[in-house]
């Protein structure tokens, strides 16, 4: 099932991504409506993180294209925010909470420029929104997992974007943080921001998101949660990998074939 949004804000067309020749995402086609709170769900190794990395142009595409605001990413980067997985950085880095949140302003500041009063105020407000203002000067290695996630979120908020991609923001956070983050995401979505979240807890999916993407190396379903959160679709996404698909993937790696022939 693939329900397309009218007037989509994000459009993914025939997207294939491979890691050293082996496709991890096959021919993804989908579109998402503005202001929706989208969950990307699927088993381990389904390519959830890869999908948002591909949309953010952080991994090379084997085929297909992505459109945001009906144009290329490079034209609208200021309106897009990305929250990487918490484990993707070394939290022993010599920086304070404030320093990390300020990094969210670097895109708007541009090269060589120093943060201005306006940037400092946005940073302050972003820290307040995630309840981290009391930890402003705390060294980031002294934070708990939940607090680190809040810092990453505050950094994203400081970007003042329209579309947010978040990679597993609920991984390894305490219950209080999860609740706070969900409330924040709902508020953002109400304000017309589009939020796309990689998530892996099926329990809370129906409660949190109004749009769902079911993924298992290929698109199983994309559409409003009420239509997609169905037994048979979940079965299809979680019912084991398609063994033929992964075997063909292995062959591609062995023979170092491209996953698509180059069209001349």
């Amino acid at each position: 099932m693939n329900i397309h949004a009218e007037d989509p804000i994000i459009e993914v067309h025939d997207l294939t991504v491979s890691y050293s020749q082996k496709p991890v995402l096959w021919g993804i086609d989908l579109s998402l409506p503005k202001g929706s709170l989208v969950g990307i769900v699927g088993p381990n190794g389904a390519g959830k993180s890869t999908l948002i990395k591909a949309i953010m142009d952080l991994v090379p595409l084997s085929s297909g294209y992505v459109k945001l605001f009906d144009t290329q990413l490079d034209n609208v980067r200021e309106k897009i925010s990305y929250v990487p997985q918490r484990e993707s950085v070394d939290w022993d880095f010599p920086a304070s909470v404030y320093d990390v949140v300020m990094m969210g302003r670097y895109g708007k500041l541009g090269l060589f420029k120093r943060p201005r009063q306006a940037d400092r105020e946005v940073v302050q407000e972003s820290m307040r929104l995630v309840g981290m203002e009391a930890f402003k000067n705390r060294q980031i290695s002294q934070l708990s997992g939940g607090q680190q996630q809040r810092v990453f979120l505050a950094r994203a908020l400081a970007q003042q974007a329209e579309v947010y991609f978040m990679d597993e923001p609920f991984a390894g956070v305490d219950a209080a943080t999860e609740k706070a983050i969900v409330e924040l995401l709902r508020r953002m979505s109400k304000e017309g921001k589009t939020v796309v979240v990689v998530h892996h807890d099926l329990q809370s999916v129906a409660k949190y998101f109004d749009w769902l993407i079911l993924l298992n190396m290929r698109l199983v379903a994309s559409g409003p949660t009420v239509d997609v959160f169905k037994e048979e679709l979940l079965q299809e996404a979680y019912g084991g990998k398609l063994t033929i698909l992964s075997e063909v993937g292995d062959l591609l790696t062995k023979g170092r074939f491209p996953s698509r022939e180059k069209t001349v």
């Binding site: 950085v89 990094m103 895109g107 090269l111």
Partner: peptide, 20 residues
């Protein structure tokens, strides 16, 4: 380039994502 080098050392992916 102090702030750019800092971001590069701390979180390269994020730097790429914001178009640095």
């Amino acid at each position: 380039l102090f702030k750019e080098l800092t971001l590069l050392a701390f979180d390269e992916q994020f730097g790429k994502a914001i178009g640095m």
